[in-house]
Amino acid sequence: MQPFETWLYPTPEGLYCEPGRFFIDPSRPVDRAIITHGHSDHARAGHDQVMATRETLAVMRLRMGAAGAGKSPHTIELGQPLTIGDVRVTLHPAGHILGSAQVLIEYKGARAVVTGDYKRRRDPTASPFELVRCDLLVTEATFALPVFRHEPDTREIGRLLASLAAFPERAHLLGAYSLGKAQRLIVLLREAGWDRTIYLHGAMVGMCDLYRSLGIELGALEPVADTKRESLAGEIVLAPPSALADRWSRRIPDPVTAFASGWMRVKARARQRGVELPLVISDHVDWPELISTIEDTGAEEIWVTHGREEALVRAATLMGRRARALALLGRENEAEDEAE
C-alpha cells in the first residue's frame, strides 16, 4: 500500500487530498472544500466549491450569509459514494451536531476516514455516529486525556432540574455553544419533562429557528429580551458561553450560572469561568470512546488532530498502532470553551 502521506497531507490551508484535489475543513479559502460540519473552526467562508451535507450547507448560509456556502455549493447525501478526481468519497454521520459527517476516502484499495468532530453517544438532534472500518483514522482529540470521561447526559440534566427545584426563586442561566449544544440541551430538557418556555439569548434565536426548519422539534422558546426580568425566576435562560460574564448577564437577576461542556469535568476550569453549576455534557468523544474508536475501526495508522495530540499518540502507540500528531493551522488556537 502506498504511504498515506503521499496522497493525503497537511498544508497551510488544511488537510489536502491530492488525487481528489480537495481540502477537508480548510482554514483559508480554497478551490474545493469538503466541510465536515458547521462550527466556525471547521466551516470558513470564501471557498469556491463547498461540498457538505444539506444541513451543514444551511448552517453555513445562516452563519456567513447567502454566499457562506461558497460560490458553488454541492450537497452530498450521507452514505452515497461520490467520485471526486481519482478518489471515492463517502460521508457518514459523525454524531457531533446536526449534519455533521465523517469523510471516508478510498484510493487504490486504501481506506482513510477523517472524523471531523464526533461523538458516539445518542444525541436526539444528530444522526448517530456510524462506525466506518478503515486503514487510516484521522481523529480529533479535543478531550484526549484519561481524566476526561463525560457523564451520562440524563444525569447532568437531572442535576440542572434538581437545582431548579432547590432554587425556584432564581433564574438558571445556562451557557452553551449556540450551534448544536444549545439545541441538544433543549431537546434533552424536553425529554426529561421540562415543558416550560425556554428563554434564549438573541444570538441563539436564528440557529434554533434553522433547527426547527430542518425538522428538530424544540418546544416553546422566547427571546429573553422580550421578557420581564421578574418573570425569569425559576426559568432556564440559554446563552453563549461568552455572555455568561458579560454585561448582558446583568439583565438576569441573581442567576444560578450553569455551563454545559466537557471541560467542566475539571474543577479548576469550572471555577475559572465563575460557574456555579458545571454540567459535563459534551459533543465530543471522551477518552474511553477515543480508545474504543481506534480499536473498532481496525485502523493500523492513527493521525491525531486538534486537541491533546500528545496523549492520544502515546496511547495509540501503546496499542501497537502507528500514530502521529497532525498540526493543522487554525485549530490549535481556538479558545477551548468556544471550540465545543
Partner: peptide, 11 residues
C-alpha cells in the same frame, strides 16, 4: 499519560 493528565488538571 498520568503525567500529561496531572499537568493539565494541576492537582
Amino acid at each position: 499519560l498520568y503525567r500529561l493528565s496531572r499537568d493539565y488538571v494541576g492537582d
